[in-house]
Nucleic acid binder design. Structure first.
Lengths: 144, 144
DNA sequence: TTAAATTAGGACCAAAGGGTCCGAAATGAT
DNA sequence: ATCATTTCGGACCCTTTGGTCCTAATTTAA
């Protein structure tokens, strides 16, 4: 799906995390989003280390956003989890591929990436939350 | 780099393969492009199985394009190597994400993918060959 | 001060991507 | 026929990604 699964999980989770005040529990988040809890825990730890989340241990602990939702772009999250140059590679697999040594697809692909970057830079967690699919998915009465 | 390394290698190789007549050798291709030869061999086999290449065994054998270069789009190659729905996944990692059950990023992302698809559908091997970087890369006199 | 709750962090496992190697089958030339 | 050459196909290895599990550290509350 172009980005890592972990990045997708992160977007889902971050869209459902409080901006300040109360902390939210990994367990609750995972349950609500129907994601593998221990894996989500790992991802949230990474986001905390990256400064995107604040964490607190012990009772009443959990995670919350470190900034206002409209201050956190999708790009920040991508870069935090997949590295700053997640979008920098050459489509054709050339080890070097830039304006002065372009691969045959360089220009066409730069256009694609430009639009993609514009999209992930301008989209923030506030946008995700607005559109949010917080309808508790009617799947099947799930036990456990 | 968004697509697999193998897809990039395939694009490089296919841009350098003859349209008809003579067959080209895996070994020569790999050497010219400075790619890992046995891995490239695997990729070429896949492309042959997918009907994009024609192969011939034995002396004078090798690979050549199965169609005219301008009849083979980058999309065909992507789909052959990464599956028909290489572009279909949801950015946010939702198991289902379509027009009737869109994730919060669905519309923005559909726009990105539309441009990307347009690009890879309209770009053919003939285009790649035209732009081709067939300057034998002046790296360092390489032995072996 | 003790116990419960919760993140932090590491060990570990499985699957997929990237990569190597080797034997078998096919084919052209001698 | 035989031999050299080349693809075909499978076995195998390493690293990354996705995922689980256990223990330690921290914090709140009784």
């Amino acid at each position: 799906m172009i980005f890592n699964l972990a990045t997708g999980y992160a977007l889902q989770a971050l869209a459902g995390l409080p901006e300040s005040g109360e902390y939210a529990l990994t367990r609750d988040l995972a349950e609500r989003l129907e994601l593998p809890s221990p894996y989500l825990a790992k991802i949230l730890q990474n986001l905390a280390r990256a400064g995107i989340l604040e964490s607190s241990r012990g009772p009443k602990g959990g995670y919350r956003l470190a900034r206002k939702a409209d201050q956190i772009s999708v790009e920040k999250i991508l870069f935090a989890l997949e590295g700053e140059d997640a979008l920098n590679g050459c489509v054709m697999g050339f080890p070097v591929c830039d304006a002065s040594h372009p691969c045959p697809m360089h220009d066409a692909w730069t256009a694609v990436k430009t639009q993609m970057e514009a999209s992930i830079i301008s989209t923030t967690l506030a946008d995700l939350r607005r559109a949010a699919v917080f309808k508790s998915k009617p799947k099947s009465a799930r036990k456990r």
